[in-house]
Design a protein around this nucleic acid. Structure first.
Length: 825
RNA sequence: GCCCGGGUGGCGGAACAGGCAGACGCACUCGGCUUAAACCCGAGGGUCGAAAGACGUGCGGGUUCAAAUCCCGCCCCGGGCACCA
């Protein structure tokens, strides 16, 4: 027994128990991983790292409780578990807080990190505290810059002028993934479009692999997430078709998923904000009308523009495209219903079989030609048809079904060098520049003579300049642009005067590879150690909220594939298994100060203690479901923990006593329940595992009070098993029980109890005897009973004889030893 | 509109692979302890019914000796995508 430990208390005192064990654990450090001589097989358990926007809240408490159960389970099962934590420490909240209070974003961030770190320690998270990282440390973002330059070398990072999403509140551009229903993901402000030159990562090059590599994740990733990613990538199969434009040398290519309807094209549309539209309008005589239309469109918010209800608008450009299959002249329109950055920004319009084209045709009084037969006439109903029927008015395609017609028309177009089969994706390249201060500077120098010049590797990291004296107010251009000392540099190539790129990177870059940095977080000559990556990666279990289903998870998968192609890692997917925990809500809706339904984690911890809060989180239901705090009872958790804890004080046998001589009934129950709990944890049904431990406590209580009594060796075996199983969820209580049972800390390393298969195998089972599917009798039978014996036994049972009432069984189904079903004649 | 999930007591939720529906807990009721209350301990309960029994996992059908579980058709709830050609 350790000096000064009080383990003979008679009352369960939450505060005292927490204060007693926390320093002991600091000292013991039971969760350090990666020692070179550790013979245990490795497991990597990763919780999504938090953003340090304040202290931990209820959501963190749930997520980290769940991750901790998994990590602690594997430790008990004998694995060398790496369970690291760090901070996603760059981002707007720090900057906005700094603006509000005039503080340095760095100070604000590190203060919050210190607070969260202490809260996590007290929350008994089994993190390896030697492996922490902060993405805002230059030692970390150094490697963001290094990776960016590697991508730049490979043509995967590039700058282009394009129409981008602009958040007028945050005064910065956003990636497509960060626009939700036309609003800024972060602040809910309606996003507008702006034409700007920005940095992109070429994630679209990986679209096919991002899609294909999801197949092996089926079963270990939630279907929901896989579906969301598939939708987001949005693969579509079709064809590219070239149209000549009268008076233009080069043909224009369009993308269509329905090349079979080519004969039904009656007009042609280009995106109003595309370069092509700007070119085609030249000399058309409608330049002013076009310019007015374009101006109107560009001030529109994304929400308005996306509305399908909006009537179709456009401008006839006074020009004609030639249908390659029949030479027909198709009028060319500019419209905002065609997107400049999908496909080629131009479409062939087939009003009979595409609702959008039909709406446009109706608005502009254009002809509608049916080329796939169906009962309804789109020109009458104004409903486009999409049936698979025989083609008509389509020359050589007449009579063919859609699949054949698609094949045939592509063949003919290819033969005439007028088109080919093609695949398109909804996914766009990832826009990573941000016009804000608190992020990773983009390591590029703009030189008037040499152009975009990478910062030489030996000059990395490009550190953020001191914010003192800088105006961090959002103003549409990066605050770094005003740091002239920092901004103005000599070109590394020609030595002439040049300027640094003043934008910073999207913070999702930081989180796209942090799981690799944990392997060797202090390394200074590389982002991570390739050998460690071989040893530990991919992550065995990733735990986090579904809010990142597309954003972070897609980007991290993309980075992993890029690193694979660079030869830095030998795997292509970073996370073998993913668990999405639900949210903690109150009275049915998300907690928020403005709603007045905010439950403060610190309050709950102060009232009920760490173990009870953790237990409540885990017992509330399946981990992926939301927890309504109004539906759960942390007080009940305290009650249960107290009952469990008392067992440890009641056991009177000595540690090490052989359980084999203990009460066989209790032993059977306990071993069965350990077995069940084990199974439940393996399949993430932690609430069920807790229920099994509750049953163990109930059974042990009964054995002490009205069974074999406190001295029985089986009672000790049971109490020790309770302590070990409970250590996953309620580490303080479990540690205290362990000490009261006469053991040295830490129970976290005690090892999962071994289940004796002989004890799990039941001595007698209850056999249900049904007549016509209704239970009429129950028999206690030997589990090994033969079918004939069981049938005879069932048929002679008085209750069955009575239920049959003289009728002869027409059929008897025997499933020994569990069930007999008698079908009366 | 399209694509995923999901509907089980008053509530959160159990039910491995078609075989006793409702584990475990909350709330509730009753009893014990207490001067009293809380805490704690014990007992109870799907619904209807006095009982025997009947009915019961969103609704309607089907398969099967047997369906919460499998199949078909609906309804409702949650989520994702949505002018992506």
């Amino acid at each position: 027994m350790r000096k000064g430990l009080i383990v003979d208390a008679v009352e369960y005192d939450v505060e005292a128990i927490q204060d007693r064990w926390l320093p002991v654990w600091d000292d013991l450090a039971p969760f350090r991983s990666g020692k070179p001589d550790d013979p245990r097989p490795r497991k990597y358990v990763l919780d999504m790292f938090p953003y340090p926007s304040g202290d931990l809240h209820m959501g963190h408490a749930e997520a980290y409780a769940i991750g901790d159960v998994i990590a602690r389970y594997w430790v008990q099962k004998g694995f060398n578990v790496m369970h690291p934590i760090g901070w996603d420490a760059f981002g707007l909240p720090a900057e906005n807080a700094a603006i509000r209070r005039g503080a340095n974003p760095k100070t604000w961030t590190y203060d919050n990190i210190a607070q969260q770190r202490e809260s996590m320690r007290r929350y008994a998270c089994s993190f390896d505290w030697d492996r922490t990282l902060n993405t805002c440390d230059p030692q970390y973002y150094h490697w963001n810059q290094w990776l960016f330059l590697k991508m730049f070398e490979r043509g995967l990072a590039y700058r282009k002028a394009s129409s981008v999403n602009w958040c007028p509140n945050d005064q910065t551009v956003l990636a497509n993934e960060q626009v939700v229903n036309g609003k800024c993901e972060r602040c809910d402000t309606v996003v507008v479009k702006k034409k700007l030159t920005q940095w992109y990562l070429r994630i679209t090059d990986y679209a096919e692999r991002l899609l294909d590599d999801m197949r092996p994740l089926e079963g270990t990733w939630p279907d929901k997430v896989l579906t969301m990613q598939r939708n987001w990538i949005g693969r579509s199969v079709g064809a590219e078709v070239q149209f000549e434009i009268e008076g233009r040398d080069e043909p224009v290519t369009v993308y269509t998923t329905r090349p079979d309807t080519l004969y039904g094209a009656t007009f042609f549309v280009v995106a109003v904000d595309s370069d092509l539209a700007a070119e085609l309008v030249q000399g058309s005589g409608v330049e002013q009308q076009f310019a007015d239309y374009l101006a109107g469109v560009s001030t529109m918010s994304e929400i308005d523009r996306m509305s399908a209800e909006r009537p179709k608008t456009g401008v006839f450009l006074q020009r004609y495209a030639i249908n390659p299959v029949n030479g027909e002249k198709l009028p060319v329109y500019a419209s905002d219903y065609v997107l400049a950055d999908y496909g080629t920004g131009a479409i062939m319009a087939v009003p009979a079989h595409d609702q959008r084209d039909l709406d446009f045709a109706r608005a502009f009084d254009l002809p509608v030609r049916v080329v796939v037969q169906s009962e309804e006439d789109p020109a009458q109903t104004w409903v486009a048809t999409a049936d698979d029927g025989p083609h008509v008015n389509s020359g050589p395609l007449d009579g063919l079904g859609t699949a054949e017609a698609v094949e045939k028309v592509i063949e003919e177009l290819a033969g005439a060098n007028r088109g080919r089969a093609a695949v398109n994706y909804r996914l766009r390249d990832w826009l990573i520049s941000r016009q804000r201060y608190w992020g990773t500077p983009i390591p590029i120098i703009h030189c008037p003579t040499c152009g975009e010049v990478p910062v030489p590797e030996d000059q990395l990291p490009v550190e953020l300049p001191d914010p003192a004296g800088l105006d961090l107010q959002p103003k549409g251009t990066s605050p770094l642009g005003a740091a002239s000392e920092w901004l103005n540099v000599d070109c590394p190539r020609c030595g002439g005067p040049a300027k640094r790129d003043s934008d910073t990177m999207d913070t999702f870059v930081d989180s796209s590879w942090y799981f690799l940095r944990f392997l060797d977080p202090h390394r200074s000559d590389a982002p991570f150690d390739p050998q460690q990556a071989r040893d530990w990666m991919p992550v065995d279990q990733y735990v986090g909220g579904v809010t990142h289903a597309i954003l972070h998870l897609l980007y991290a998968r993309f980075f992993t594939k890029v690193l694979h192609d660079m030869g830095m890692v030998d795997f292509t997917e970073p996370f073998s298994s993913l668990l999405n925990q639900g949210m903690v809500v109150m009275d049915g809706s998300a907690m928020s100060k403005s709603r007045g339904n905010l439950v403060r984690l610190s309050d709950e911890l102060a009232v009920h203690g760490v173990d009870a809060v953790r237990l409540t989180m885990v017992f509330a239901g399946p981990p992926e479901d939301d927890i309504d705090w109004a539906d759960v009872s942390p007080a009940a958790s305290v009650r249960f923990l107290t009952r469990a804890w008392r067992l440890s004080g009641d056991v009177t046998s000595e540690p090490g006593v052989d359980p084999a001589s203990g009460d066989i009934g209790l032993r059977r129950t306990i071993h069965r329940l350990i077995h069940d709990a084990d199974h439940a944890v393996e399949s993430f049904r932690f609430n069920v595992a807790v229920a099994k431990v509750m049953e163990m406590v109930n059974a042990t209580r009964k054995a002490i009070d009205s069974g074999p009594g406190p001295a029985d060796p089986a009672v000790r075996e049971a109490a020790e098993a309770v302590a070990i199983l409970l250590s996953l969820v309620a580490p303080y209580t479990a540690e205290d029980m362990w000490a009261r049972l006469g053991h040295e800390p830490s129970v976290a390393l005690a090892g999962w109890p071994t289940v004796d298969p002989e004890l799990v195998r039941a001595l007698a089972v209850t056999c249900v005897v049904q007549v016509a599917g209704k239970v009429k009798a129950r028999l206690e039978v030997d589990p090994e009973i033969g079918e004939e014996d069981l049938q005879a036994l069932a048929l002679s049972d008085p209750a069955i004889v009575a239920a049959l009432d003289g009728a002869t069984p027409r059929r008897v189904i025997v499933r020994a030893p569990k069930l007999v079903n008698i079908v009366p004649g």
